[in-house]
Amino acid sequence: MARSPNCTGAPLFKGRVDVTISYPDPDCEKFDDNPLALPSSEPTDAQVSYTVASKHMPVWSHELNHVKTAVLYAAGRNNSASSAKVYYRVLKNGANVATGSGNSIPAGYLYSGSFPLFFDVQSGDVLSCKLWAEGFDLRRTGVYVYPTRIKAGTPIVADFSLEWNAQGFMYGEQTAGMFSYWACCPSISNTPIAEYYNAFAKWLARYSHPQWGLISTWVGDQDKGATISASGATTYHAFQSPRITRISYTPLNLRV
């Protein structure tokens, strides 16, 4: 066994960690044939509301220390004769999180709203969104929970590899090809580790940052910006982080 030069005879390497993460089917509601008209002023009750439950949670083969974040989705159509925008109010457990409005949506276009505003969600949290606009409807809603700030038990690891699935999934086939803001990023930077359509990355060694861990996602963690934008005539967007599906590394018994 190799020995650490800065330790007192303890083994340099610990046992290999190899963890898989699987995800439930997206919790997505589609009511294209019976859309809900949006009111022209703020409604009393949220039209989009999900209670985070175990059915939303990623399943780990061996759970590493991490934080869960969530994105709420809402999409529909501008049925008016002119371009207009949608206003929103996002709430967590009934408390205000954010307000705003997105890009102007051309007449006849679908719009897609993504609200990655729920860092550190827990089972039982109620995530909701109110929408209002002139001449718009609501056709699809959804929620997606995923891990970020995944940490190793030691500050330094070797032979770190990461696998992920970057395919859009929230709205099924209508999401494909136009879906996503990507992102896995280095621990303390928002520089992409690879293009989102790659599915594998490897490092000789990696630092498990006290805050950001081995790996943290962009959407829903470092980027908590809501978006509502036009998405075409038949396709919806769902800005999402790629789903990390496997993490493996060898912990190093080094002090830093």
Binding site: N96, A98, S104, I228
Partner: peptide, 28 residues
């Protein structure tokens, strides 16, 4: 005041008059 829908729309009108294409306000 962003606690009311009227406040949201009032801010939107002010920002659009400046040329804004979109905006968001975080309470936290």
């Amino acid at each position: 005041d962003q606690s009311t829908g009227n406040g949201v729309m009032a801010l939107d009108a002010q920002l659009r008059a400046k040329g804004a294409e979109g905006w968001g306000y975080s309470f936290a």
